[in-house]
Amino acid sequence: MKIITPVLLLMLLTLSCKKPQSFEYRDLKNFKIDSLGFAKSNISMDLVYFNPNNFGVDLRHVDCDIYIDHNYLGKYVLDTTMHITKKSEFAIPSKMQIDMKNLFKNTFNTLISNEVLLEAKGNTRVGKGGIFITVPFSYSGRHSFSMFK
């Protein structure tokens, strides 16, 4: 009986802990160019996501590579802890340094099509109750973009 009780308790804890689902990308807001240079530029924005989980989670770390039309744009790293409530939208304030030579590769195509393929590939650390796991994510989507708005 002494052995069965801890095993049953461990099984119950394992079944009750559900792996968090990936966040759903919703929108990009407050896009701003902080500094503009020939080699590197700094931008900031708020990335809006939705937490589809039936429980709140803590977001500890984000590390991803950003691509525009399959060309590497830059690396995004967020190293802070945020609490995200269940079934809710949330915004992540983001700053990023971009490589201008790779951005210029996309300028002609963007002027012609007014649409870009935005991709983000990386990992995030999410958890609850002090237990964190690494969740890989990959986002790809077409976005309207006009240089003359």
Rank of each mutant, 00 (worst) to 15 (best):
T81A: 06
T107W: 04
F55L: 11
P52Y: 08
Y49R: 10
I84Q: 00
N114L: 04
A39L: 14
L36W: 12
A39Q: 13
K105E: 12
E89H: 12
F90T: 06
L47G: 03
I33S: 10
H83Q: 13
Y76V: 11
I68S: 05
T80V: 11
N30M: 09
Y49D: 04
T110G: 08
N42F: 02
T80A: 09
Q97E: 14
D58N: 08
N71H: 15
N53C: 05
F50K: 14
L47H: 00
F55M: 11
I92H: 01
E115V: 10
L111N: 09
Q97G: 04
A91Q: 06
F31C: 10
H61I: 09
S41M: 05
V57L: 15
F90L: 08
M96H: 00
I43W: 00
N102C: 09
T107Y: 06
I98D: 01
N54P: 01
V57M: 09
I33R: 10
Y67H: 09
T110R: 02
Y76P: 02
T81D: 10
V62H: 00
K105P: 00
D79H: 05
D65S: 13
E89F: 05
T110M: 15
K86N: 07
S41R: 12
Y67D: 08
V77E: 12
I112L: 10
I66F: 01
R60G: 11
L111F: 06
F31K: 14
I112M: 08
K32Y: 08
D63Y: 08
G56I: 11
D65E: 15
T81K: 14
A39G: 03
L78S: 04
N53W: 01
F31W: 14
S44N: 12
K101N: 07
G74H: 02
T80Q: 11
C64H: 04
C64K: 03
L47E: 03
V57Q: 05
H83L: 04
D63C: 03
R60L: 11
S35L: 07
D46N: 15
V57P: 01
N106G: 01
F104Y: 15
N53K: 04
V48E: 15
K32G: 07
L111I: 07
F108W: 02
Y76C: 14
Y49A: 14
D46P: 03
L111E: 06
